[in-house]
Design a protein around this nucleic acid. Structure first.
Lengths: 338, 338
DNA sequence: GATGGTTCTGTGAACGTTCCCAGAATGACG
DNA sequence: CGTCATTCTGGGAACGTTCACAGAACCATC
């Protein structure tokens, strides 16, 4: 079997007009569902469209209307997180739902190299999208700067420092982390540590800050280990390191559920019982949480809402409305792990 | 803080030409890096571009060149799988790498509703992409039909039945499933069952067929439970059901690693030791496999290669080369779970 | 100094739409 | 039967590029 596909010359609106014995203008009106076209003409055009196999050329349309009805979603994640972090999928789906209802097409653009970064910037600049949602930006992200530079309506998911003054949808990571750490302390834990991650991101920084705030005077830098990514592997190694540093540890705040899952495995392999010997709490309430045994006590963050809210912020700008940053509520899900 | 962003009228190539005291044509040549432009002119143009803040309008360019330098990747997954299946991320990244090198932009389009389906079809038809990679198509997928209908160069990841005659990048699921099941039987297991999933997909069907082939006369329909999705939850419930049906079960083939992970949890909660009492094998060799305790024996499928190969198949068609379906190698990773 | 090849620049035409305006046809009303 | 509004249709202009071609300028060669 050999498959070679060639694209035939595509029928244009003029071909349809000729076939229907009507004019360009009328065909355009039918295609766009405008009023002021007779039933007779409508049928003739529709029949002609089917006959010549017409499909509208979006480039031509975008050129004259000066809009694309598409919104870009920029995924700028380190390689491995695209597989591990269930939040990304939720954000994507949340954004898609809102945009879909507003008849916008969501186009996701991955940045995985410097070359991607340049190409995506060109794509955004070129007018192929009317706006952008930027997820997982780091501090001073070059793409965010490019977006602001061209004045493209945009919104962040999260609230990274050092970035241009764009609206964002975020949660209060500091407060949420402070809160769940306090709750962990309230169970009577005496020696509590943290596995911190992603300190190049606002979420990573803020969760550490919240932990520190909750610990107050009891905060001990030695009881914090740091890893670059929110991964299971970080949790596994981080917990082993904490056990080495402080064998008497009896509580752990993991910076994400994936990290907590890794930590739980490490504890169990080390013969510690959860939660009897060591209490452990996570962050995200992602699919990891219910998968752990015991199930994870964690902070619920509404990932899908973050996506949909960011999308709404972009749509608002498109309508010329002012759009305010929005901070969404989190909740503590207390389960069996602490 | 109130952020309202409005887009100013964008500078065109003519504005640059005026500012540089040169013509449209020369500016175009500079922008596209063509030869036959004097050093003097080049500098004048570049300076003018910076001064007026020019960025090329892609719609106009696409219109005249009749190409977009973009490839669509269509993700048509049930909601939950976007979060659970690490293969999707690998496929995405694999495709992105190949396309990026060829200077194509990968744009991912999610289909999560019928409305999405129509909009995405319009997007593909409109000339906004030069080709498409379709992942996770079900039998007789409407999008696949639409793609074939307009003659858009395209390729599948996987090889679903009842779809148009497009090239694909796939693995031999039947043979791989047969092979790992045989290997499981070789460890001396007497009562072996399967947790089958996604029977609406070629992969799901084929893995079941491979299991059946390996079991031969020992195949017992009662020892197969079926679930719609490759999820942890399916594994959890499926294993419980199998234990109910056949308490003496001593081997399980789970249709994916996520399913196997769920099954392992169910077994351990039921007090069965893995692999002593029950041997368990999975499929994918995704990040789940190393995360299980004991680690999972499974079939390694090169998800990133599937993505990059499918991308190559599309690029080949774009160059007018014939493109043949490609079946990639799998390997058995034998670890501790069986 | 004529010839011929480079190198460089300017411009008309085309890509396929939508938008807008002009005008035709139709119908309602006095 | 004239007037005016409403409904419908056609076609010129514009969107911002690239492409092909023509011609100018320059240099080398005979």
């Amino acid at each position: 079997m050999s498959l070679t596909r060639t694209r035939a010359r595509r029928a244009t609106i003029n071909d349809v007009a000729d076939a229907a014995g009507l004019s360009r203008g009328t065909v355009s009106r039918v295609v766009n569902g405008e009023k002021y076209v007779s039933e007779e003409a409508r049928q003739a055009v529709e029949e002609a469209i089917a006959r010549v196999g017409y499909v509208r050329n979006s480039a031509a349309r975008n050129l004259v209307t000066q809009e694309s009805k598409a919104i870009g979603l920029i995924i700028h994640e380190p390689h491995s997180l695209l597989f591990e972090d269930p939040n990304i999928g939720s954000i994507l789906l949340g954004a898609n739902e809102v945009l879909s209802k507003a008849d916008y097409q969501l186009v996701s653009l991955i940045i995985d190299s410097d070359r991607d970064s340049r190409r995506v910037a060109d794509y955004l600049r070129g007018g192929l999208v009317d706006g952008a949602v930027i997820i997982s930006a780091r501090a001073s992200d070059p793409i965010a700067a490019a977006v602001a530079d061209i004045g493209l309506p945009a919104a962040f998911v999260g609230h990274p420092d050092g970035n241009p003054d764009l609206p964002y949808a975020a949660i209060d990571n500091v407060e949420a982390a402070r809160s769940i750490t306090s709750r962990l302390l309230d169970t009577g834990r005496q020696r509590v540590g943290m596995i911190a991650s992603a300190l190049d991101r606002d979420s990573g920084q803020d969760r550490l800050a919240g932990f520190r705030a909750a610990m107050g005077e009891r905060f001990d830098p030695q009881m914090v280990v740091e890893y670059p990514l929110y991964t299971y592997a970080a949790g596994l190694e981080g917990m082993q390191e904490l056990l080495r540093r402080a064998p008497g540890i009896d509580g752990v705040f993991a910076a994400s559920d994936a990290v907590a899952a890794g930590a739980m495995t490490a504890l169990q392999e080390a013969g510690r019982r959860v939660p009897e010997d060591v209490g452990i709490v996570g962050f995200d309430d992602s699919s990891w949480a219910l998968r752990c045994r015991p199930q994870l006590s964690t902070v619920r963050q509404p990932a899908d809402l973050l996506g949909s809210t960011a999308a709404e912020l972009v749509l608002a700008q498109l309508k010329g409305q002012p759009s305010q940053p929005r901070v969404l509520e989190t909740a503590i899900m207390w389960r069996g792990s602490a």
